[in-house]
């Protein structure tokens, strides 16, 4: 119905505007008035020990993790490549109907690349804060971390190849056999 579509658009525009307004928040700080320019007083060990288990705090830790991943995905171009490859690997695995035991290798391969990339990104951020200017030591640290990502990527690629190889091989064989039978059928006719 035209009118319903129009009204949905109107409501949508309201919601979009409110969402837009919500997105203008720069700080997700819940209690901004507790922010201090100079946090001079160290946190006592006793207060750390006395911390009680809280479901809210646990849920909040998930939100921090999600925020970290979000930052990584938004800022690191390598992550976009990882994401594309991850989607391709998952799609191929579903297409080739690989076994549960082989899925384990794929999950491991994908995970090690993401973990290495996350640690590398975190290290880069930290290095940029510690030394915003050029520093040979910081450069070496960053390069080594990038090397770790490369190793994990090679490792993951090897695991992927080893896992997929039998399936790809059998698929090719099936395909060839199918071609062979089709050709025979044509010859008969």
């Amino acid at each position: 119905m035209v009118c319903c579509i129009l009204l949905s658009l109107l409501i949508g525009s309201f919601l979009w505007i409110f969402k837009f307004i919500g997105n203008t928040k720069l700080q997700a700080d819940q209690k901004p008035l507790e922010w201090r320019l100079f946090s001079v007083e160290p946190i006592s060990l006793n207060s750390l020990e006395e911390k009680q288990f809280s479901v809210r705090a646990r849920l909040k830790s998930f939100s921090y993790a999600a925020n970290g991943l979000n930052i990584m995905l938004k800022t690191e171009h390598n992550c976009w490549v990882h994401l594309t490859v991850t989607i391709l690997v998952f799609s191929s695995a579903l297409l080739l109907q690989i076994s549960v035991s082989d899925w384990r290798w794929l999950v491991l391969a994908i995970s090690i690349v993401w973990i290495a990339e996350a640690i590398n990104t975190a290290l880069e951020y930290l290095c940029d804060v510690v030394s915003p200017d050029l520093n040979s030591g910081i450069k070496a640290a960053k390069d080594i971390a990038a090397g770790a990502v490369l190793i994990s990527a090679i490792c993951a690629a090897s695991l992927g190849l080893l896992t997929f190889f039998p399936y790809i091989e059998s698929s090719i064989q099936n395909f060839a056999n199918a071609d062979f039978f089709i050709c025979k059928a044509f010859q008969k006719n």
């Binding site: 203008t24 700080q27 901004p32 320019l37 100079f38």
Partner: peptide, 17 residues
Amino acid sequence: DRALQPINEFNGFEWND
């Protein structure tokens, strides 16, 4: 405290609409 932080930082402000 809020005024003396770097110009492009807005820590401690209340971001609503």
